[in-house]
Amino acid sequence: MTKRLVVVTAGLGKPSSTRLLADRLAAATARHAGVDVQVIELRELANDIAQNMVTGFPSPRLGDAVEAVTSADGLIAVTPVFTGSYSGLFKSFFDVIDKDALTGLPVLVAATGGTARHSLVLEHAMRPLFAYLRAVVVPTAVYAASEDWASGGEGALASRVDRAAAELAALLGTRPGRPASTADPVFPGERAAEDATEVVPFAQQLAALAVER
């Protein structure tokens, strides 16, 4: 079965170097594995995301985007760097997704910026974000500065893109089944162990300690 790869790009311009990097990563992943690619441009959902943040209810367009991400076999997430971190639009989109909905999802993180000195955003901001969401982030993250495009995106950038794409392709299809609810996933044998364990209320435990004294 062909795997579903969703690409989330938070570039604001048109054309956008962020979208260009996202497209290269998607194409490289497709070379390593058969995938159906869906691209989500967050700039087109900016108003919907803002409304969801204040009302708690997604528009149909935003709901479709969230469903695409949470049901995907793999995700490529690309953001421009703003003030040393991911953009507010990028963060807001992932804020409206349930914190358990990306559990086990293979993710490739990438970013674009004006200079190479912003490249640490991948490690101090993006990787921790998806680790918190319990996604599986591939080892190689990709950062593209303005100078990387001077040679048409070839050389070192092309090598990083291909390596990261290969890592993501290798993880496609490995995501465990999504839990029926937003609670933590239950693995085989875990439920039986929980049912066999008697839960003692905390107040009762405190009372027992008082008697022992």
Score class of each variant (00 low, 15 high):
Val78Phe: 09
Ala150Gln: 11
Pro188Phe: 07
Gly74Pro: 04
Val69Ile: 05
Glu190Gln: 14
Gly13Pro: 03
Glu212His: 01
Thr18Ile: 09
Thr115Ala: 15
Phe202Met: 13
Leu25Cys: 02
Val39Pro: 03
Val37Arg: 10
Pro139Arg: 13
Ser159Tyr: 10
Asp195Ser: 05
Val199Leu: 10
Ala192His: 05
Leu25Asn: 04
Glu167Met: 13
Leu171Met: 15
Ala72Gly: 10
Lys91Gly: 07
Asp184Trp: 14
Ser71Met: 04
Arg61Phe: 01
Val69Gly: 11
Leu45Cys: 00
Gly152Met: 10
Ile76Lys: 03
Ala156Met: 08
Arg163Ala: 15
Ala158Pro: 11
Val8Lys: 13
Ser146Thr: 14
Val69Ser: 06
Ser92Leu: 10
His124Cys: 02
Leu105Thr: 15
Val161Ile: 15
Thr2Phe: 12
Leu45Asn: 00
Glu212Gly: 00
Leu157Ala: 09
Ala193Gln: 12
Ala144Val: 03
Val161Gly: 12
Val69Trp: 03
Val78Trp: 12
Leu168Trp: 11
Pro185Thr: 09
Arg134Lys: 14
Ala193Met: 09
Val8Met: 07
Val107Met: 05
Ala30Lys: 08
Gly74Tyr: 09
Ala207Asp: 04
Gln205Ala: 13
Glu44Gly: 00
Tyr132Gln: 08
Pro176Val: 07
Thr55Leu: 05
Ser151Asn: 15
Ala46Met: 05
Ala68Pro: 01
His124Ala: 04
Ala210Lys: 14
Gly173Cys: 02
Thr9Pro: 04
Asp73Arg: 06
Arg160Cys: 05
Asp162Trp: 09
Asp73Ala: 02
Asp184Leu: 15
Arg4Leu: 12
Ile76Tyr: 09
Gly104Thr: 06
Arg43Cys: 03
Asp48Phe: 07
Pro106Lys: 08
Ala183Gly: 15
Val8Ser: 08
Leu21Lys: 06
Val138Ile: 06
Pro60His: 10
Ser151Phe: 03
Val109Gly: 02
Ala165Ser: 14
Pro176Gly: 03
Val6Trp: 07
Thr140Val: 11
Asp48Val: 09
Arg127Trp: 09
Pro128His: 07
Phe57Asn: 13
Ala166Ile: 01
Val211Met: 01
Glu167Pro: 12
Lys14Pro: 00
Pro80Arg: 11
Glu154Gly: 14
His32Ala: 15
Val109Met: 07
Arg175Trp: 00
Ala141Pro: 06
Ala26Gly: 11
Leu122Gln: 05
Phe57Glu: 14
Glu44Cys: 00
Leu25His: 02
Tyr132Lys: 07
Arg19Glu: 14
Ala28Leu: 06
Thr174Ala: 11
Phe57His: 14
Ala192Pro: 00
Thr115Met: 09
His124Gln: 08
Ala180Thr: 13
Leu12Asn: 04
Val186Gln: 11
Met1Cys: 04
Glu41Ser: 14
Val7Ala: 07
